[in-house]
Design a protein around this nucleic acid. Structure first.
Lengths: 202, 202
DNA sequence: GATTATATATAGATAAGTCTGTATGATATT
DNA sequence: AATATCATACAGACTTATCTATATATAATC
């Protein structure tokens, strides 16, 4: 059974980093299954066998790419949240950061949803990884909702996650970055409808 | 240049129908790009050249499959809406029908979003088809919202579409059909927050 | 009615290209 | 010497689409 944990062993290598970054970009922009190993190594300027030295398989590379993407994205969202002064505004700041995401050149929806879609089999390890990322994102929502004192923080967190995913998806499908404004206003409605005992009107 | 409009000419053929139905099932359950035409014809019990007689290419078959799926889905949603007595409840009835959709054995998210995701290139004709379907769905939302007399029916329609897409996506990613309850309650919140002058509180 | 044409369907072989992963050996780098 | 990287060639398994030849059944025409 190969050695699937080779990935975690030597995380610090310039070649390895280059492979992950290049693959992350290619996989996102063109779809994981539409990008072959050959293209990854050509664009990385790395030898074929160097890839298979660092990664047991293409799946192993994909896994590393998703880990990398999750780390970056979650960190960026936490930073966006810090722009808000109270929990409620921190929640909305995260949603406002959607704008920058979808306006990005080459935006193509949520990388994690895309990955889960391309791998149709729900028992594929990728699915667990995607579910974990989405749970982490939902965890941020839930934490802020709890801090804001809303009555059902977990419910609100799920609802905000639906809005998040839906906005990313439609901005991609309809090719319209401005749609996120509607998502932001929906988030405001949901957040403000979940009143705590003490709160400011809008 | 062959004759690409052959598809539309003779829509009524048992073999053709069988191909579309079989492909629709296989494409949805396993992903379009993960299913070869070999499998489609084997499962259909149809000869290879019969497929290429009715369809110019695999892409042409995919297009027919999406048309077929859109027709069925939109019709079913209109029927769900009829269970409601007034525009507002008709909107919510559509959302309640989500439950049955995600509880379906082999549920794998939205077939149209999945198709758009697998075809990464936004200029792929499939994208237009997917966008058209989503616009039709949003059109249903917007019509009912207008009939309900909400102040910004188009805005509400987009927001409901985000919820719709997000709920389908997360129910798939997290493999939890019960999540749609949270989406239904969010829809209620949004619909009821978009008050018309005369309306009942909740 | 007999003949001819057209539409539909089948069968199998195969072209031409894709893909992942491996085998092998040489070469740097530390 | 051990680790890391490179360069090429290759195996084997896929893919879509094409080609050729054949079988029916219906429709058009003489």
């Amino acid at each position: 059974m190969k050695t699937p944990e080779r990935t975690r062993k030597k995380p610090g290598s310039r070649v390895r980093e280059k492979l992950v970054e290049t693959a992350a970009d290619l996989f996102y922009r063109r779809g994981i299954e539409n990008v072959g190993i050959n293209e990854v190594i050509e664009r990385s300027g790395v030898a074929r066998m160097s890839l298979y030295y660092h990664f047991a398989s293409k799946d192993d590379l994909i896994s590393a790419v998703l880990d990398h993407a999750a780390e970056i994205r979650l960190k960026a969202l936490e930073e966006s949240a810090e722009k808000g002064t109270d929990p409620r505004s921190r929640l909305l700041e995260i949603f406002r950061s959607l704008k920058g995401i979808v306006e990005n050149e080459g935006f193509r929806g949520c990388a994690f949803i895309n990955a889960a879609t391309e791998r149709a089999d729900p028992s594929d390890p990728i699915h667990e990884q995607v579910a974990r990322y989405k749970s982490a994102l939902r965890g941020i929502f839930a934490r802020l909702a709890r801090e804001a004192g809303v009555p059902q923080p977990d419910l609100l967190a799920w609802q905000l996650l639906f809005l998040w995913d839906g906005a990313l998806t439609e901005a991609y499908v309809q090719q319209r970055a401005d749609l996120v404004d509607a998502a932001i206003s929906a988030a405001e409605t949901l957040v403000c409808s979940s009143r705590s005992s003490s709160g400011s009107g809008r």
